[in-house]
Design a binder for these strands. Structure first.
Lengths: 374, 374
DNA sequence: AGCCTGCTTTCAACCGGTTGCAATTTCTCC
DNA sequence: GGAGAAATTGCAACCGGTTGAAAGCAGGCT
C-alpha cells in the first residue's frame, strides 16, 4: 500500500478528464451529477472506486474486491484495476470503509503529556510498529488528569480499533470498563485481565543499588512521583527490595509532580532525609533536583548523588551528566502496538521480548559523603 | 509513518452495557477471545440516530437536525430528542458523518520528528488551539525525508480537513498540488499562494548580532542545516543581513543534519573557518557542537562562543547553558490551526499576532578570543 | 372560504465502500 | 458437443448520518 500520491498533479489532471468524460458518456447516469463530494473548500474531490469503475468498465464491487480481497477476481482484471487505481491516484477512504466494516485502522495512544521526553521513545516505537502494521496511531493527551483521561478515551472509543494507555491514572474499574468495549493495552502499569507492557526494572535497579553500595551509600532517598501513578509506587517497591538486599535503607519523600519543577522544589525534602543519595521517580525530577542543587550550593555528586529514571533526551547534557536507569520505552511502544494488533495466540507468543531496564553510569553519582540531616 | 495526536474537547460517557467478557487468563497469556472483530468488541452495537428515531417516533432526519442544526426543529421536539439521546447514551459516529459531509473534524500536523524538542511548543500550541476549535489533531512524522513526507500526506489526505506542514521539505509544486485538495498551512516556510506562519526572526537575530559585536567578535560561522530546509537558508540570510549591518562577516559551513550528531560532527568545519563565534541552525546542532567542544578541549565560551536557535528543552541545562534565539513556536502552532479553521477573511485578520523571536542570553557566549584558523 | 406564508417534519437520495447472493462466463470432463 | 462445476462479475442492500425538496399544518388576510 505505497501508492505515491506523488503524482498528485497528474492524478488531478486525469481526474478532471474523468469528470469531463463522465458527463459526455452519460448513458445510464443514475446519480445527480451536480453533487460534488466535499474535500477542501474549493478543493478537488478525491478519487473513488466509482471513478475506477467508470474508467475500467467494471462495477464498483469488483473494484472493491480487486483491491482488498486477494484472489477474488481474475488476475488480469485485478492487474488492470490496480493499474487504473494507480494512475488515477486512488486512495481508499478509511472513514467510508469504517461505516460498513466498523474497523478504522486507527489505534489510540493515551498519555499524560506529549511534550514529556519520557514518552518520546514510547511514541516513536509505537509509531514505527503501527506504521509497519498498516495502522494509524492517534495520540491523546491527558495532562495528568484522570478526568481528562476518561474524557479522552470516551471520545476516542467510537473511532479507534484499540487503545494503549500509558502510565494511566484511571481507576481499575474504569480501565476494565474500557477494555470491555475495545482492546486495551496498558503500558507502565499492570491490571489483572488486561494485557500490559511493563519493562523489567529489576536488573537496572539492582545495578544502581550495587553501584551506590560500592560507593558507600547506606541511606537512599526516593524522590516520589504522583501517588496515583502505579509506576511510581512500583519503582519505589523494587528499589526497597533491592536496597534491603544490599543493606541500604530507603526513605521516600512525599509525592511531587513528575516534572523538572517538581524535582526542583523537592530539594528541601531530600536534604531533610539525611540520605546521601537520591533515586528520582524519573529524569525530569532528577534534572530539577540537579538544578536546585546548583542553586543551593549542594555539590553533585560531592554532596549528593543523584540517579534518575528513563534516560530521556537531555540527561546526557546536564552538568554533571545524569546517572540514570534507562527503560526501553521504544520497545515497549512497539510491543504495545503488537499486542493490540495481534489477532491470534501465536502472535502474542511471538512478542515475548525481555524489555530490560539498564543502568547508565554517568557523572551524578559519587562516593557517599556523610552529611548531618538538616 | 503516521502518528496521530488527538485532543479531546467534548466530554463523553463510557457506554455501560457489557455483553462480552474477556477471558481472565492472567496477564501473561493475553489470549484474545476467539475471533471477535475489533470493530464492535463490546458486542453491543452502538446506539444510532435510528434508535432514537424509534424511541421518540420522529424520523432519523429530524433527529439529525435536532442534534446538529440548532433552530431547525421545534424547541419542544429538540428537547425530547436530546433527552432521548442522553438516556440512550448516543454518541455521534464521526466516521459516518464524514461520508456525507466530507468533514472529519481532524487536522493533520506534519513534521519531521516528533521527538525533536524543537516541535514541542509547536505541537502544544497547535493542540491547545485545535482543542478550542473542537478539532482533532493528528501528527504525522516524516523523519526528514521528503518522500516519506509525501507518503504521509497522501495517506492522511482523505481523512483530514486540513494539513499543517511544519518545516516541510517538499518541492513547491508538491505543496501546491496538496493545497488543491485540502487547506494547507505552512509553518517555518513561505510559498506564494499558500498561507504560512513564520515567526519574525529579525529582532532576535539583531540582538544576538549586537551581543556578539559588543563582545568583540568580527567573524561568525553559521552552522547550516539541510540545504533543502527553507528555514535554514532563511536564518542564514537574515544573519548575513544583520551581521553585515554590524560589520561582522559570516561564513556558512557545509550543510549538516539538524541533530545533535550533526552538530557534533561539524566542529572541525567550524574551527576551519577561523570564526570566534558560531550561530547554529538550531539548538540541537548547537548542543552537539557544545559536546564536541568538550571532547575536543575547546573551551566554551573561552575558545568559541555558541548561539543556538529555538530554545528547546534541555538548552537550559547544558554546560554552559546555551545562549540562544527563542522562537515562539507555541504561538506559531496556534496560529497555524487558526488559519486552517478560519473560514472567512475576518478570522484571518484577527489572527495577526506578531510572533517575534527573542534573544536569550545564557552562558555559551563570551568575549572574542582570536584564534588562528586551523 | 380560499390562498398565501412560514414553520415543522418527512421522504428519498446520497456519500464511499463492503458483501450476500445471483447471474454470467469459463473451464472440465465425459 | 453439452452438462455441470467453478470461477468471475454484477446487482442491490446496507452502514450511520446528512440534506434538498416536498409535504403537512398552523395562522393571517382578503
Amino acid at each position: 500500500m505505497r501508492v505515491g500520491f506523488v503524482v498528485c498533479t497528474t492524478a488531478c489532471e486525469i481526474m478532471e478528464h474523468v469528470l469531463r468524460s463522465r458527463s459526455q458518456s452519460g448513458k445510464v447516469t443514475l446519480v445527480s451529477p451536480e453533487h460534488v463530494p466535499a474535500s477542501a473548500p474549493g478543493g478537488k474531490p478525491a478519487v473513488t472506486i466509482y471513478d475506477i469503475a467508470r474508467t475500467t468498465g467494471f462495477s464498483p464491487s469488483t473494484i472493491s474486491r480487486a483491491l482488498h480481497k486477494p484472489g477474488r477476481v481474475k488476475p488480469a482484471t485485478e492487474k488492470a484495476i490496480r493499474a487504473a487505481a494507480e494512475s488515477l491516484g486512488y486512495r481508499i477512504n478509511p472513514m467510508a470503509r469504517f461505516v460498513t466494516t466498523g474497523r478504522t485502522g486507527t489505534l489510540a495512544l493515551v498519555l499524560s503529556d506529549i511534550t514529556n521526553p519520557v514518552f518520546f521513545d514510547l511514541v516513536r516505537g509505537a509509531e514505527r510498529r503501527a506504521a509497519r502494521e498498516g495502522q494509524t496511531l492517534v495520540i491523546a493527551e491527558t495532562h495528568g488528569s484522570s478526568s481528562i483521561e476518561q474524557e479522552a478515551v470516551g471520545r476516542l472509543l467510537p473511532t479507534v480499533d484499540g487503545i494503549i494507555l500509558a502510565s494511566s491514572r484511571l481507576e481499575q474499574d474504569q480501565i476494565r470498563a474500557i477494555s470491555e468495549h475495545k482492546n486495551v493495552v496498558l503500558v507502565n502499569r499492570t491490571l489483572a485481565g488486561v494485557p500490559s507492557v511493563v519493562p523489567q526494572l529489576q536488573p537496572g535497579i539492582r545495578d544502581a543499588v550495587n553501584h551506590l553500595g560500592a560507593l558507600g551509600h547506606v541511606s537512599v532517598a526516593f524522590l516520589a512521583g504522583p501517588i496515583n501513578l502505579w509506576m511510581s509506587r512500583h519503582r519505589l517497591r523494587l528499589l526497597e527490595e533491592e536496597a534491603t538486599r544490599a543493606g541500604i535503607s530507603v526513605v521516600a519523600t512525599s509525592p511531587a509532580e513528575p516534572t523538572v519543577e517538581g524535582g526542583r522544589q523537592s530539594l528541601h525534602d531530600i536534604l531533610e532525609t539525611g540520605a546521601t543519595a537520591v533515586v528520582a521517580y524519573n529524569d525530569l525530577m532528577a534534572i530539577g533536583l540537579l538544578l536546585a542543587c546548583g542553586e543551593g550550593n549542594v555539590p553533585v555528586p560531592g554532596g549528593l548523588s543523584i540517579i534518575g529514571f528513563d534516560d530521556i533526551f537531555g540527561s546526557r547534557f546536564t552538568s554533571p551528566p545524569l546517572t540514570t536507569i534507562r527503560t526501553p520505552l521504544a520497545l515497549a511502544g512497539e510491543e504495545a502496538v503488537l499486542l493490540l494488533t495481534a489477532t491470534d495466540a501465536a502472535d502474542h507468543m511471538a512478542s515475548g521480548e525481555p524489555l530490560l531496564a539498564e543502568f547508565v553510569l554517568r557523572g551524578s553519582t559519587g562516593a557517599a559523603v556523610p552529611r548531618p540531616a538538616a
